[in-house]
């Protein structure tokens, strides 16, 4: 049955196009300069990361031991490290890894969290109680120690890193989605859908999911920075990505060791991480304001 998009048929010629809530939200977001700036930075970083293998000024492992550590210059915009490697190149490669961890682990959290939350919220009753009880138990785990433990015990493995971080972050996502679905379930338009005799699947697909998407998008945007932070933290401890792979956390860790002599080795990777986190957080905040139905009333 293909009744999903009944947009065809003869509508009156002079029908005015309505503005959906999404269009409204986009219009509001466009007025938020900080959020737009954030969005721009994120797009820029993604493009640079994708193109890094082709546009990086130097080879990733290209050493120049004779040069050693030099401060920023025309040849090396971010300076070089103690092996004479170009820092800009290394920051670009590190960003590639950090962004990838951020997006993939958030994706893992998103999938698990949304599924878990929707099922719990829609099923309700005992199923919901058991599922959310489990989330509560997981919340009580000292996760930081747990991840460290996993990394130490099973070796530093990037897949494991994704899974471990995803496993922490999905909990909050599940709670948010469940809360959203639960409050929607009591709304009269869902009751109206029931009284129209719609199937359960159609109600979930056409009525529940589109209306719970807003908070999910916002939370996703805000999860990416916290995931990147977690990865950087683990790399800083020497437990995340391992050389020769690189990430901003690892670069910061290396920078700290030599910060007295060569502060730029700490400052540039630090700045890169901070600016990215900034942009994502501003974008997330902006999306929250834009998608909040309460702000649409004035």
């Amino acid at each position: 049955m293909s009744t999903d998009a009944p947009h065809t048929g003869q509508l009156p010629d002079d029908a005015e196009q309505g503005t959906s809530l999404w269009a409204d939200a986009w219009a509001r977001l466009r007025k938020n300069r900080l959020a737009l700036f954030g969005l721009g930075v994120i797009i820029f970083l993604c493009v640079v990361s994708l193109l890094t293998p082709w546009i990086a000024p130097y080879g990733y492992e290209q050493q120049n031991l004779a040069l050693g550590a030099t401060p920023p210059s025309w040849q090396h915009w971010f300076g070089t490290d103690i092996f004479g490697r170009d820092l800009l190149t290394r920051v670009m490669w590190g960003g590639r890894m950090s962004l990838m961890v951020g997006f993939v682990a958030t994706g893992v959290a998103l999938v698990i969290g949304v599924l878990w939350g929707t099922v719990a919220g829609y099923a309700g009753g005992r199923v919901d109680a058991v599922m959310m009880r489990l989330v509560d138990i997981l919340y009580a785990l000292p996760f930081m120690i747990f991840i460290i433990l996993l990394m130490v015990v099973f070796g530093r493995n990037i897949i494991l890193l994704f899974l471990a971080i995803g496993a922490v972050e999905w909990l909050t996502m599940a709670r948010i989605v469940r809360g959203q679905v639960q409050s929607l379930r009591r709304q009269e338009f869902i009751e109206a859908a029931h009284s129209l005799g719609l199937s359960r699947w159609r109600i979930i697909r056409k009525h529940l999911i589109p209306n719970s998407l807003g908070p999910v998008i916002v939370y996703t945007t805000l999860t990416i920075p916290s995931v990147m932070l977690l990865e950087a933290f683990l790399s800083f401890l020497g437990l995340g990505v391992q050389p020769p792979e690189s990430s901003w956390g690892l670069l910061i860790n290396n920078g700290v060791e030599t910060m007295e002599e060569y502060p730029w080795l700490l400052i540039f990777p630090g700045l890169a991480l901070a600016i990215t986190l900034f942009s994502l957080n501003f974008l997330g905040d902006g999306l929250r304001d834009a998608l909040d139905p309460r702000s649409s009333k004035d």
Binding site: G18, F189, E191, K206
Partner: peptide, 8 residues
């Protein structure tokens, strides 16, 4: 509350 806000 009785109309789905995301449907025309």
């Amino acid at each position: 509350a009785s109309l789905n806000p995301r449907m025309t």
